Computed example of a mutant assay.
Amino acid sequence: MPFGEQPAYLRVAEDLRQQIADGSLPPHTRLPSQATIRSTYGVSDTVALEARKVLMAEGLVEGRSGSGTYVRERPAPRTIARSGYRTLGDCSAFRQEQTDERVRGTWEGHSERVEAPPAVAERLRIEAGEQVMCTHYVFRTGSEPVMLSTSWEPLRITGRTPVMLPEQGPLAGRGVVERMAAIDVTVDNVAEEIGARPALAAEARVLGGLPGHPVLVVHRTFRAGSLPVETAEVVVPADRFRVGYHLPVR
Rank of each mutant, 00 (worst) to 15 (best):
L16V: 10
S92R: 05
A57R: 15
H28N: 09
T36Q: 15
V54T: 14
S44G: 13
R38K: 15
G84D: 11
A51Q: 12
H28I: 00
A13V: 09
V43G: 07
A48L: 12
E97Y: 02
A48Y: 14
S65P: 00
A13R: 12
D45V: 09
T36M: 06
C91Y: 05
A93T: 12
P77F: 00
T29I: 00
R17D: 09
I20N: 09
P27K: 01
R86H: 06
T29N: 08
T29Q: 14
V43A: 08
D15R: 14
R64T: 06
R95T: 10
T40F: 04
K53W: 06
Y70R: 05
R74C: 00
P26N: 07
E73P: 01
R17W: 08
K53E: 13
T36G: 00
E58M: 08
D22K: 03
I20G: 07
R17Q: 10
D15N: 12
F94D: 04
G42D: 06
G42W: 05
I80T: 02
A13G: 08
L55C: 08
R17E: 15
R72P: 01
S39Q: 08
R64S: 02
A51R: 11
A21N: 05
T69W: 07
T40Y: 05
T36V: 14
Y70D: 03
G84E: 06
G84I: 01
T69Q: 04
D15W: 04
R95M: 04
E58F: 02
S83V: 03
D45N: 13
V71Y: 09
S33N: 04
R82H: 09
G23S: 01
E50H: 15
G84Q: 04
A21D: 06
A57H: 12
R82I: 04
L60S: 04
G42L: 04
Y85I: 03
T36R: 11
R86D: 03
V47I: 15
P27S: 06
R78D: 00
Q18Y: 09
R86I: 03
K53V: 14
